[in-house]
Design a protein around this nucleic acid. Structure first.
Lengths: 190, 190
DNA sequence: CGTCACATTGATGCCTCTCAAAGCTTGTGG
DNA sequence: CCACAAGCTTTGAGAGGCATCAATGTGACG
């Protein structure tokens, strides 16, 4: 049920929560209880600017963790509001930290997970820096971002799905890509 | 000289390198020697698509670390080429891992650093999802992304510096921002 | 006082978003 | 087995906004 590396945690280290859309998971300034793993649904992490404007810091979706840094700081730095009803796991801070100190393998795995995420996000940021839709789509494809359907893919790379479809067919016409099926493409090997 | 948490490492754990533009730091498939901290200059991390195209995975600048995940995997997964001549620190893998295992505070600090970076990158990704230049600039400002000059700021938030300047003056005119000096702005408190 | 890099504003063109509509697939229920 | 619905795929037309090129202003520093 829990993804690695959290699967080694004892049952007392976490609990499953079922929350409805609109409910508040935590608020900015609350003492941090732990980090969260989302099974289904979605959560928005919000901060508030001094002018009163709401700023979306992050939108967490299924199978993602969030509020990781709360392990190492004492209070949450943003609000977490349920966007859709969700089932999620609260990984309690103290047991996780205890595991971190007593189990070097867990510590390594956790750190490795974060380090890998850092690199993944850097890749996505570099991807979004590519201005041309065609080039961006090609790069994203070559980097393996296309896992589900095209619309999801389009959102992930910051393009409208129409622009993505057009870029895809251009790339096929130009011979850079091969269409292998409905919504399936692969990079042409020279 | 080294930033936290690396400042606790013994002198034998790292060495300083001076490299010229165009030199190769490591190649994809090379056994991983460690992670790097860039003092000055810049490094491009590259992967190669099957069609032979070069893909920029990341561009590291001064005071950044990169190749963090190499601590936990055996080989590098991309090439590192010097974009500009650079002075950098190679943090050797084995001593760092040894410190990680023997020094819980170091382990925590390292993990905390990665977790914080994850959140920073998520914020930037969410920021880049904002289409309107004005809204993006405002959000970025409210989130404290403006630290250095405007051109750097513009690059970080994925806009041309001209568009950024225009958005800034619009926001000032509309009363959302206050110009506090040449290239200095702050969010208006209501 | 001259140079350099940043800051600022103007004009133009292109690219992508947006709205719209029509094929195509798949799944569901009668 | 067929009909229909729903959602993805694909293509079209139009408009707006940002990138780009260009030029000038301005502050810092030697």
């Amino acid at each position: 049920m829990l993804p690695a590396p959290f699967d080694v945690l004892p049952e007392t280290a976490y609990r499953v929560l079922n929350l409805d859309a609109g409910e508040t998971l935590f608020r900015q300034g609350d003492p941090s209880r732990g980090i969260f793993y989302l099974i289904t649904g979605s959560v928005r992490l919000l901060r508030f600017a001094r002018g009163g404007e709401t700023i979306v810091v992050h939108r967490a979706g299924p199978l993602e963790t969030f509020a990781e840094a709360s392990l190492f700081v004492d209070v949450y730095h943003c609000d977490a509001i349920l966007e859709q009803a969700a089932q999620l796991v609260e990984l309690r801070r103290d047991p996780v930290l205890r595991q971190f100190h007593s189990d070097p393998l867990f510590a390594m795995a956790l750190t490795s997970r974060f380090a890998t995420q850092v690199q993944t996000y850097r890749r996505r940021l570099e991807l979004l820096a590519v201005r041309s839709a065609q080039e961006r789509v090609f790069t994203a494809l070559a980097e393996g971002f296309l896992t589900g359907d095209i619309k999801t893919f389009a959102t992930e790379i910051g393009l409208s799905h129409e622009a993505t479809y057009r870029a895809l067919s251009h790339l096929v016409r130009r011979g850079h890509l091969i269409k292998t099926g409905r919504g399936k493409y692969c990079v042409k090997t020279t």
